[in-house]
Design a protein around this nucleic acid. Structure first.
Length: 464
DNA sequence: ATGTAC
């Protein structure tokens, strides 16, 4: 794949009309990261993304890009909201997978002696693992409300406070959600999964503010060094997965009906002004609302656990921000001096509007970051930035590398109490399975599409 | 990511 450097942190795949590219590909990276990206099939997938009808400016990739389904994880594709297309594969299976950061009113040093108890209690209170079922079972009408209202539904039911909603992307509820476009099968999978963590890289961590880089921004968000925090990384579980599966099929059929050709069936798509696209958008927004409600419920149970284990005062867990990294949003952006309405696909990419908190989780042994979005992100990346570290070992390679080792004890030596459900969950997710998130964050910070505010270090983690 | 194969 031809790749030319066009700036200190920007690389271009030139537009190749023969392969159907309508625009170039652009990768945000430095020399070191681009070396590992070069050998990855992700660049082919990014070039494929550049063929989507109605794509604007470029198919973009963040520095944590890696191979995904259709479009690489770390990809950002903006299409004309009327004359372009929407592609379920360019959003991903875990619709509104995202991250929530919550601040506590206690210092980590004051709860260090009770960390084992705290993590055990969180692990007992929050269902984890593949296929895990929640404390709730929703009837059809209640599920409709969750799908239509998102986190607002949870807060109305007492799972949180109205202030929480002010600190969630889009207020924790996407307008235009259409529960009627979510299949019975997806609904059945979701019915017992609200308030569950899931598996894989999903987690709930107790963290500490390790270092503050932007003192003013940190103070404005109420953060200080030494403060205990909670970070939650999960999405729409089996419901969102089924919505994606259902609409990949719809989009596959739409290709023929609308005379669209794509180089990879995984990039199947439908014109934004077609019934197929409207249906998918309605279902995707409903799944996104399910995910917002999911993170809200986990926050509620974390509050209960903090109060029970640490005392009533510790119940005060306030949302700092909650942001999606697998989603499509219809947004206005300035392109060549003209305001345009675009369908922005972010797949493993985080919205980074000016002043907006951005949460970038790393691996469970090292650290995560809080950043803030910028005007540069609006100019360069349709208001987007990276979403995490990215794997360096496959799951199976990680399990092989961990054979004969005790990852739980290794984490304990690094000061992290870990509890997990799956047999190989800790091995698959061990720190050395991931790139150092610091390298990824350095690039987006230097390029200017989001700026470091604080670094967070894990103290306790529960996983599926 | 995922009732990790309907």
């Amino acid at each position: 794949m031809q790749l030319e450097q066009v700036g200190p942190y920007l690389w271009r795949i030139p537009r190749d009309a023969e392969r159907g590219m309508r625009v170039p590909g652009l990768v945000v990276a430095d020399e070191r990261l681009i070396a590992s990206i070069r050998s990855d099939a992700a660049l082919e997938q990014l070039a494929n993304g550049a063929t989507l009808p109605g794509i604007v400016r470029a198919a973009l990739a963040m520095p944590d890009i890696h191979q995904g389904y259709g479009l690489p994880v770390g990809g950002v594709v903006a299409t004309d909201a009327v004359h372009g297309v929407i592609s379920p594969g360019a959003i991903g299976f875990d619709i509104n997978c995202g991250v929530r950061l919550v601040k506590s009113s206690v210092d980590a040093a004051d709860i260090a002696a009770r960390m084992e108890r705290l993590v055990d209690a969180l692990y007992a209170a929050i269902p984890t693992g593949v296929g895990s079922r929640g404390a709730l079972t929703l009837d059809a009408r209640t599920l409709d409300e969750v799908l239509a209202r998102g986190a607002a539904w949870a807060v109305e039911r007492g799972y949180g406070v109205p202030d929480d909603l002010e600190r969630i992307e889009s207020g924790g509820c996407l307008d235009g959600a259409d529960p009627g476009k979510v299949s019975d099968r997806a609904r059945e999978r979701g019915r017992r999964q609200l308030g569950t963590l899931g598996s894989g890289n999903h987690f709930l961590e107790v963290q500490v503010v390790d270092e503050v880089e932007d003192a003013r921004a940190a103070e404005a968000l109420g953060l200080h060094v030494g403060q205990a925090m909670v970070m939650i990384h999960t999405g729409s579980r089996g419901l969102g997965h089924q919505v994606c599966t259902d609409y990949l099929d719809v989009a596959g059929k739409a290709l023929r009906r609308h005379g669209i050709s794509v180089p990879d069936r995984q990039l199947a798509c439908a014109p934004n002004d077609s019934p197929e696209a409207r249906d998918y958008l309605g279902a995707m927004r409903a799944a996104a609302n399910f995910a917002f409600a999911n993170r809200q419920l986990l926050t509620h149970w974390a509050r209960d656990v903090f109060a029970r284990v640490l005392g009533a005062d510790a119940r005060e867990l306030a949302v700092v921000y909650d942001v999606a990294h697998n989603i499509a949003k219809v947004e206005e952006h300035v392109v060549d001096g003209v305001v345009r309405r675009l369908t922005v696909h972010r797949k493993g990419a985080t919205r980074a509007f000016p002043g907006q908190p951005v949460i970038v989780p790393g691996d469970m042994g090292r650290y995560s970051y809080l950043l803030v979005g910028t005007e540069a992100a609006m100019r360069e990346t349709f208001g987007s930035t990276c979403h995490g570290a990215g794997r360096v070992l496959s799951r199976s390679a990680a399990v092989r590398a961990a054979r004969g080792r005790r990852v739980d004890l290794e984490l304990r030596e690094r000061g992290v109490v870990a509890r997990a459900t799956g047999k190989d969950a800790l091995a698959e997710e061990m720190p050395e399975a991931y790139k150092d998130v610091k390298d990824v964050v350095d690039v987006v910070h230097r390029f200017g599409i989001s700026l470091r505010v604080a670094r967070l270090r894990p103290l306790g983690v529960i996983k599926g």
